[in-house]
Structure formats: C-alpha cells, structure tokens
Computed example of a mutant assay.
Amino acid sequence: MVSMIPNSDQGNQQQSRVTHFFKQAKIGTFLHQSNIHKEKGFSALVLVQFIFSLVLQGKNLYRTLESGRLPDAPEKDAVYDLMKRATYNWRNFLVLVSAHLIETYLQPLTDRDGVLIVDDSSYDRNRSKAVELLSRVKDHSTGAYFKGFRMLTLGWSDGATFLPLAFSLLSSRNEKNRFQEVNPNIDKRTVDYRRRQEALQKGTETLFTLLDDINPVKLGAKTLLFDSWFAYPSIIKRVVTQYPLDVVCMIKRSPKIHYTYEGESYTLNQLYQNVRKKRGRAKILASILVGLGSDEHGQEIQARIIFVRDRNRSKQWLAILTTNLDHTEEDAVRIYGKRWGH
C-alpha cells in the first residue's frame, strides 16, 4: 500500500488507522459499486487512500507528485486519470460511504432524529481560466459576484456531527456569464455529461435531484432544513408531498410570496401585522398557522410560521416555518438551529 506517512512507529500507527478506517467505511466495496476502478496499475482503492493520506498530512497533491520524493508514489497521470474519468460516479460513492457511516456508527450513538440540511455556498475559482462552465456567479449571502461556481450541498446532521451526502456545482444559466462552455467531445452517455447538464439547472431544481439520490428513512432523517433562498411555498409543498420529510426553514420577506390565512392571501409582513405579539423581551414574538396551497388531492398543506426576535437587531424580527404542526415554537427554533451546528 502506498503511504504518505513517514516510516516511523508513529507513522505506522497512523497508516494503520487509515487502513482500518477504509475497511470500516467499506471504501473498496463502494468504489466498485460506483464504477470506480482501474484496468491496470495502482487500483482505485490504493490511489484514493494515497490522496486521503495527503489530506491528513496537509500536503499539496501537485507539489508532492512533482517533487519525486516518494519513490513508491503513483505517477501523476494515474492520479489525474482517476479524478477526471467521465464514467466514475463520485457522487454515488459519497452517498454510499456517508450513508453507511451514519447507519452503522452514528445513529446507534443517539436517540435523536437526524435532519437533512441543504446549504448553498460559494466555490471560488478566481485563478482558473479554462475550467468548463466557469462562470460569473452571485453569492446570495453577500450579494457580490465572483468567478467560480455555487456549490449546493445536501448533508446529514444529528446536531453534533455533520456529514455531506451529495453535492452539485452550479454554473450560471445565463450564457453571457459563462467563461467556458462544455467540451463538445464529451460522451453524452457518461456521468460527467449529466453533471454538466445539471450545472445549468436552477438550484431549486437541483435540490430535488440530490434528494432523489438518498433514502431519508434509512438515514433516520425526518426533517429537511434550508435557508430563505429555497423557501418558496411551491418548493416546500413539493418536498412534503414527494418525500417522507417535514420542512423547517427560514423564510424571506417578499411582496411576491403569499400565504393563506383565514381564507385570505397575505405577504409575510402582512401576516406579522395580523398576529398578537408577546410582551416584553420574549425571544419568540408570535406564531401563526397558514396555508401553502393544495396537494394533488385538493387538501390544503398547512404550516406554522414562528416570528422570532433578531438577536443581532433587537427591534427586527425573523420568521421560521415548520410543516410539522406537532412542533412547538421552541421545537422549530431548536431544530432550525441544527443547520448552524456544522
């Protein structure tokens, strides 16, 4: 086995722990199930363990391979071929490994329900020039534009541990904002081609692609958490009707988003004006039961909106929505807090 660990008692112990973890996590099995294999030379398992050891040592892959200081290290072409092969399903590999670790090692440690978390973050590639679908994209948390991608991540958490399950790099849907287009020679039957097509979808649509890749029931997850960027009644309604999941999310103040209350349509600001607020310095100001629209059987989907004091601006408020009507106001706030635990 190729090792990046120095040849010493401490190094041998660390390498032994890495090898033991790879067996526990069934890395070899899941690589095979994700069609990740090599026809010749170092096996995919050896190469993945080599890269994993580099991360543990804080070493740069390119510099390590160029230095030639490790006579038993693989050639750089072997490593690069592993990472760029169009038929390898790395997302499926991540789903299988994470699900196995959650079911086998994390769930038995707690009786608390797990949650799924959707996170939209920036993936900066300002120094890149020729990366396919490299784009000028907007960071929705700051409003600034940068060169790179948005990275949509779906993960699992029990409030103490966070594990990523699946992710997707999103480009700009506006062709004028893209610096590079897709290589026209790529095989359209491959996983890589499907990922490139996915990169041009709306983030709200990709959310459901990621959810389709996992099994929430096996993961013990009953709730999906996300921030206000995804919090549209149509998205929330689709989640609760298509998956065995409740939704807890922050919702935005928008004049274009309406909720039903006592048979009338209201914006979030209008709803806040209709509720009776608690007196004093209460953290939870009020709550209200609203409708999000009807399901395919004509039944109205209901949700509870909880208005909470903004701890950064005491005179302002935020709104959290839960589709689980059994949640108390405190339950909804506590569960949403798991989104920030990672």
Rank of each mutant, 00 (worst) to 15 (best):
R178L: 08
E175C: 11
L210N: 08
D113Y: 14
V247F: 10
A44I: 02
R313G: 02
Y243R: 03
G220P: 06
P6G: 01
I102G: 00
L200V: 00
P6R: 02
I335D: 05
Y80W: 11
L106H: 03
P74K: 10
T110F: 15
S128G: 05
I36M: 01
D187E: 08
S228P: 01
K147R: 07
Y232C: 06
L56T: 03
S34V: 07
R173P: 00
E329K: 05
I284S: 09
H140V: 03
K315V: 06
H258D: 11
V290M: 07
A78R: 03
K59P: 00
P233Y: 01
L65P: 00
D246K: 04
F307R: 02
L211P: 01
T206V: 15
W229V: 00
N269T: 09
L56V: 05
D310T: 07
P244N: 15
G337E: 13
A25G: 00
I214R: 04
G280M: 06
S43D: 05
T142S: 09
Y123L: 09
T110Y: 13
S53T: 04
L207M: 08
K222L: 06
Q299L: 10
A221V: 03
R279T: 14
D227P: 07
F93T: 02
H37L: 04
K256F: 15
K176T: 11
N269C: 09
S172R: 03
L65Y: 04
R150G: 06
L109T: 11
G11R: 01
L163N: 13
V240D: 14
T206N: 08
V118D: 10
G203V: 08
H258R: 07
L211H: 06
I102L: 01
D227V: 04
V275F: 09
V248Q: 02
D213A: 11
R69A: 04
R281N: 14
R17K: 10
K338G: 06
S34G: 09
L325E: 15
G220H: 13
S294D: 15
